[in-house]
Simulated assay, not measured.
Amino acid sequence: MPTLSDTRVQNRYRVQPNDANNYETLHGGELMKWMDELGAMAAMRFAGETCVTAGVDDFSFHRPVPVGEIALVEAYVYSAGRTSVTVRIRAWREDPRTGETERTTGASFTFVALGEEGGPVSVPELTVETDEERELRDEALEAEN
């Protein structure tokens, strides 16, 4: 059974002018796309199957990411159903010169695992073993409420 840590993925995106809105900050839709892609990677790592987005909950923008800075996105599976997985996805703005970060966004995405025939297939149970994994799971569950 996969652990929460096995599903944890992270990526960085340099915010370019073509990623920006009228305020010269990262367009929310572009960040949502990056979060969805990374969330699918975490879900597929967990399920061992292709996973597609079924829903988005608790999507909150806290602060912008200016052009020239980095959007740091992290995703991990924190809950599993019969054919679906729930992924917590968080984003930070990162100064490329100092590495200083500031939380910008949080969301929970639900993905459904699909088999070769294109229909939903079962996913394994999630294992949470370490204190860090428990803290991440608890934070994600708390964000749901």
Results as ranks from 00 to 15, higher is better:
C51G: 09
G55M: 14
V56A: 12
D57M: 07
D58G: 13
F59Q: 10
F59I: 14
S60H: 14
F61S: 07
F61G: 06
F61V: 03
F61Q: 06
V65G: 12
V65M: 07
V65Q: 09
P66S: 09
G68Y: 01
G68M: 04
G68E: 03
E69P: 02
I70M: 09
I70F: 07
A71G: 05
L72N: 06
V73R: 05
A75G: 10
Y76H: 13
V77C: 08
S79A: 14
A80Y: 05
A80H: 04
G81I: 07
G81K: 11
R82V: 14
V85G: 08
V87W: 04
R88A: 08
I89M: 02
I89R: 00
I89V: 15
A91V: 00
W92P: 00
W92I: 00
R93N: 05
R93Y: 00
P96N: 09
R97L: 13
R97S: 14
T98I: 08
G99N: 11
G99Q: 09
E100T: 10
E100V: 14
T104M: 02
T105C: 04
G106L: 15
A107E: 03
S108M: 10
F109H: 12
F111K: 03
F111E: 07
F111R: 06
A113M: 08
A113K: 11
L114W: 11
G115I: 01
G115L: 02
E117T: 13
E117N: 15
G119D: 08
P120D: 14
P120E: 12
P120F: 14
P120W: 15
V121F: 04
S122D: 15
S122V: 13
E125Q: 09
E125C: 05
V128L: 09
T130V: 08
T130S: 15
E132V: 06
E132A: 06
E133I: 08
E133L: 07
E133P: 10
E135V: 07
L136H: 01
R137Q: 14
D138E: 13
A140S: 10
A140W: 00
A140D: 02
L141P: 01
